[in-house]
Amino acid sequence: MNVFRLTGDLSHLAAIIILLLKIWKTRSCAGISGKSQILFALVFTTRYLDLLTSFISLYNTCMKIIYVGCAYATVYLIYAKFRATYDGNHDTFRIEFLVVPVGGLAFLVNHDFSPLEILWTFSIYLESVAILPQLFMISKTGEAETITTHYLFCLGVYRALYLFNWIWRFYFEGFFDMIAIVAGVVQTILYCDFFYLYVTKVNAVQRFQ
């Protein structure tokens, strides 16, 4: 555990909670892509199956349970409790175009051809592109509420901090996981355009176009 890893995890947690609270407080999920949230729930489910097979630390176990729980709570709020406010007409990204190729890639490029390892690899690849339905929705409607942009910003910061974490671990621990690093770089790049808009527009005019 290093400072980049810890702040990355906390930034990730902040993003997840910001989104949950926003939906809960406004009683609305307008502008939020339910499809991205389904993908994140799938990412956490397939990645954290090792909760059942191995214990790493109390921190690790607690964070995994919180991430999975919040992901399903968010999906529940969007598709059940506040379904009437869900903007399905603008959430039109075809997620099978992500899930199917990512599933194929996880079968072909992995560290070990075993069910848990393939599911872990699938989750790593899927996480790198899971935000695309949300970014697609924003590009389609041409706007996002400020709080939604804070959510995306925290998610992007989390990814960037994980890159620094890997650089740290490479130098100080000799740790090097090519699958996680390549997927992490791809994921961070997807947020770069958004970062630029966030810094130049959101903080200036509080409205994001």
């Binding site: 890893r5 995890d9 790493i56 964070m63 070990d112 390892e117 872990w120 994980y162 974490n165």
Partner: peptide, 10 residues
């Protein structure tokens, strides 16, 4: 490195 072993990252 710990390929295929315990994964401590989230």
């Amino acid at each position: 490195c710990s390929f295929g072993e315990e994964k401590d990252e989230l």
